[in-house]
Nucleic acid binder design. Structure first.
Lengths: 244, 244
DNA sequence: CGTCCCGTTGACATTTATCAATATGGGTGG
DNA sequence: CCACCCATATTGATAAATGTCAACGGGACG
């Protein structure tokens, strides 16, 4: 087991050298606890730090002028947080903990040093940011062109797949850890309508809900009706330089 | 004037060394012409090449099962195209020319070599991909949480700002180069509704349309009603390593 | 001169939001 | 342990936003 959460993610892309592992471990030397509901970085405030999420579930969101919220992304252990913030004078998004979390803060100069000293890791970070980009464009297509039911279905599938990346024991049944309002803010719907869509999905036999636990009872149909693609599969990284 | 379109973009972030310029110029040694309407890369087909867009306007989009299209991004000279494609066995999006274009193709191993030989350029490429990421999350919030009128307004402002990045002579009046159907596919609306929103914006005195030319007659109000932020401004790149 | 693509407009249908009321369930102070 | 309280979930009635369908016009281009 690696000392670094982030190294585990990168290590699944390609084997890492000892030097590379050591360099990544240095990003996670310090830890900070973030309680459920606490805000790690606030939109429009200066942000000089980056983080590796070590434990727990977080989200990033923006608030619009009329007070409505758009959740941009859910964040899982091994994710790097705050990249969009460090290139601007003010953070473009808020980072907020959905459960009690542990994060490892590091300075942006540490990222710069890492890119210089370990260019192969730099390529791998670029790859991770491209995977994230594709996940965002999938969500863009979902918001722009799919029905409310499909959006909710796709969100359930994505959360399950990403939870499973951390905890292999997760299968069809899991606890989502989101309120219906949060699902709505991620899918561009109201919480009321999310509730109706969940009920419809349940009536159609695609999911089941018992005491906070959610079961995907027909993943094939759900994935088809939701236009869902798991973007952590089917990668081709053969062009990465080999480990030294 | 730089020999490389891409170097011009990166050069606006921070001054480049001669070595760096030379390395970037090598990405643009070859050129290929793409006619209006032609497809450079098709969704779900293998894609081994990357491109720098040299001249013209392109777009990337995905098609859903029901045949509807979501335009993900408009592409301008100096943009790197195809990054999301090279990490997957099959391209996740289609690249299509909206006008006659010139692109410079290069192999993905050239990117890998560049990242290794010029880590500072690697950091700058990562920065550009983060700017793009923030632009995508802005569009995500736009699709999820703003009205049809605001979406159309934001699109007009973004196109104007990005066209101006290439052609400084562009001010309030410009020609958009998109059909109303394309505007709709980018904003998650139907072409019919886009038409109505354009008329409303015109009736409210925010824009004017004459023979294919579009004029932003009240940018301040338009930007406010559209929740628009120009993401190519207010960058803070002081933490980049200095030029050697 | 016709054809085709695009833009425009109106009538109507559908989806989703809004508002309001009620239920439920877990946590907390007494 | 109980009573209360708050956030969340659920449901119905109605409103608003947007889509769908259909028709027509105008300009570019063969």
């Amino acid at each position: 087991m690696s000392a670094s959460c982030f190294a585990e993610i990168l290590g699944e892309l390609a084997p890492l050298s000892d030097d590379e592992c050591a360099a990544l471990a240095r990003l996670e030397e310090r830890t900070r606890h973030v309680r459920r509901g606490a805000i790690l970085q606030r939109e429009n405030e200066p942000a000089n730090e980056l983080f590796i999420l070590n434990k727990g579930l977080m989200m990033s969101y923006v608030l619009l002028d009329d007070g409505s919220r758009q959740i941009l992304r859910f964040l899982f252990p091994g994710d790097m947080l705050g990249m969009p913030g460090i290139i601007y004078r003010e953070a473009p998004e808020t980072l907020c903990a959905l459960s009690d979390c542990v994060v490892c803060p590091f300075d942006r100069s540490a990222l710069s040093d890492l890119m210089t000293a370990q260019p192969r890791l730099g390529s791998m970070i670029l790859i991770v940011s491209q995977i994230e980009r594709v996940a965002l464009t999938d969500r863009l297509a979902m918001l722009g062109r799919t029905s409310a039911k499909a959006r909710v279905g796709a969100l359930l599938l994505e959360m399950r797949d990403r939870l499973r990346a951390t905890d292999k024991s997760i299968a069809a049944t899991f606890s989502l850890g989101l309120t219906q309002e949060e699902i709505g803010d991620a899918t561009g719907l109201t919480s009321v309508h999310v509730n109706r869509m969940l009920r419809q999905l349940e009536e159609e036999g695609l999911i089941r809900r018992d005491s906070g636990k959610l079961t995907l009872t027909d993943e094939i149909t759900l994935a088809r009706t939701a236009n869902y693609v798991n973007r952590y599969e089917n990668l081709d990284l053969s062009w990465l330089p080999p480990r030294k």
